[in-house]
Design a protein around this nucleic acid. Structure first.
Lengths: 209, 209, 209, 209
DNA sequence: AATGAATGAGTATTCATTCAT
DNA sequence: GATGAATGAATACTCATTCAT
């Protein structure tokens, strides 16, 4: 069952994803983690601390994985990012939904730190897209908007993809790669190494913290 | 400034979009609407009634517009739906975000009604997609998944599109149409009548209730 | 019984005096005032706001009365201050004890305002004492210390004086006047107009706010 | 640094004096003593036990010292008590403030014991004063009130006296002796042996428990 | 139509204390 | 001797809602 702290984190991820931060009470968390609400406070600071910690860890992992992605050409880098993003959003659906949806629940002071991390991750996308545009590999006219549309599109996976459903994970990744490169315009789709990326995701998410 | 009831609805849409249903208090609503919290209750039932009413109205308008869309071929119907969806999500960003994000905040009893409306709307998409597949106009292998991915992609517009930004609304609609038909596979993009759809959107949203 | 707000203030004064600020719970206040603890919040801000407001009002009254005191010579001014202080501490025992004892319970931010008021009141004492020293009316060697000792001595009245006990109020005032002037050294005791000061006290405490 | 138990007592005296009994949490005590809050309970019973024990020890010492005071005449006995009281309140400011201020924080059951001790101490004062009145050495009309006023006046020293300030301890004691005997009326001030009393205070407070 | 007053149930968080290790 | 873990009861305060006026 893991350590108590892990149980608390899991409970928080599940409930924040299901009911939202403000819709989840401290009592709900305690019950789900199998603790009294007073004991909960041995394993966390405030409720917001817990949320921040979940977001920080998740985004840090994403940034780590993103920076370890292979691929030299802009097409390969975008393809890798899409596959990384889609795989994590398909495999860690609850966690990624919390990160994507609960930004607004953060106090301005705490939001800053988390936004900084997210910006660092999105900068990886932006630079890959911008490079592709410079080189003429992509023809999209508004690269900033393209980034937003792509991320929105890929993040959606966390809301509907069923791991045990009809679409195998690798196929999902390939399809999204095709869609993404199509959206960027005139780009040929590089050969995908989904398996390699899956290994990367598993590695990064296996590491403690 | 509109009737008091409209002020209440506007306040609710703004705050629910900004802070979420559970993050918005009755006093916040009252303050934003310029009323006392007791007076608020002259213009609404419970807080949940207000949310349901906003969602019902918005989804009803979307269904109405969706059913009035012209277009005979599957390609034309999908194109129309994409343009309708993108335009509404770009123009009515707050309202559509509330509809998309606050489903989980509904009590099971109330959720049923709203989900039924949403299902009715999504059925328009599904049938267009399915028809296209039957006829061989689309080659996508998993039509249900395609619907989900398309809706997710188009709904994202409400989260980032800036009406006063660099991309004009018609261009946005066209781009999304292209991306959507590309996603469905092997479909030629029919000529777009974005202006006509814009009129439809404005008409439906102008009507009271 | 007075307005509800007055009942809340009375309850707070009684309980803060009896059990201290930290020893008094919001439920205690509500019960004493005959309200539910939620209703209490219609009539106050936070518990600290209530304490500050009580202190501010009491000190403001004391300053007002102190500034209206007649008396030209240092002896007369000190005598007036002693009588004012003793009378208020004998008549408003609970309120003055709250002011004297609960300073430490204030948050630094709120403490500043209250301390400023108290300093303004004590400055009246200090200047009378200092003037007496300059003129040679008092022979005390450490005037600052004399002020502290005098205030401490006179404030003590609020802790033990029984209004229905053997010592009449005017006699109490006279005795303290004698002790105070003796403490300051070599001062002749001016004729006391305790009745006049009693009228002043009653006037200032009768006024709303 | 003394035994752990002494560290706990010192922490309690400091914090109870600074923030009051109800304003001091068990965690505050633990932190100040450099222990975990669980370990704290190896060195004390309940929080109230700790307070009672501090008060009992302090009052016991005061009674012990009071009973050992030399002096045959009522004037000498009062002078000795004043000097004892002033010296202890100047030297043990925090401890004496806790004793004086936190009586109200005690449960009725525990209060009885402590009040009994205090009464025993105050009885020393009362009998000296009463004897002086019987013999005609004092002319004060209300002896009980005189005791209260004297104690209040002398205890105030703990609230403002600065050991490193301009007034030397012996002078402070002499001044208070003069004030006290003046307050009692028509009493000549006996020669003071402040140094002797200081030795007594130091002896009694040096003894363990 | 509008609101001040009222509240029971709820909020997140801290309390003093115990106990197994 | 020391402590991490645990908790029931309490803390100050807010919630959505009702109602008399």
């Amino acid at each position: 069952m893991g350590t108590t702290e892990q149980r608390v984190r899991r409970a928080a991820i599940e409930l924040f994803a299901e009911r939202g931060f403000h819709g989840t009470g401290i009592r709900d968390l305690a019950e789900r983690a199998g603790l009294s609400s007073a004991t909960l406070y041995h394993y966390m600071g405030t409720k917001e601390d817990l949320l921040v910690s979940i977001m920080r860890e998740s985004l840090t992992r994403l940034v780590t994985a993103g920076e370890r992605l292979p691929g030299a050409s802009p097409q390969e880098r975008v393809a890798g990012l899409v596959q990384l993003h889609v795989l994590t959003h398909a495999v860690q659906q609850e966690e990624t939904r919390v990160v994507d949806d609960e930004m607004r629940s953060l106090t301005p002071a705490r939001r800053a730190e988390v936004v900084a991390l997210r910006d660092r991750y999105e900068a990886l996308w932006q630079s890959a897209i911008d490079d592709g545009c410079s080189v003429g590999a992509f023809t999209v006219s508004a690269p900033r908007v393209a980034r937003l549309a792509l991320l929105e599109m890929c993040s959606g996976v966390a809301r509907w993809y069923a791991p045990d459903g009809p679409i195998p994970l690798p196929e999902l990744a390939v399809r999204y790669t095709e869609m993404a490169l199509g959206l960027l315009g005139g780009a040929e789709v590089p050969p995908a190494d989904v398996a390699g990326i899956r290994v990367l995701v598993d590695t990064v998410w296996a590491s403690q913290n």
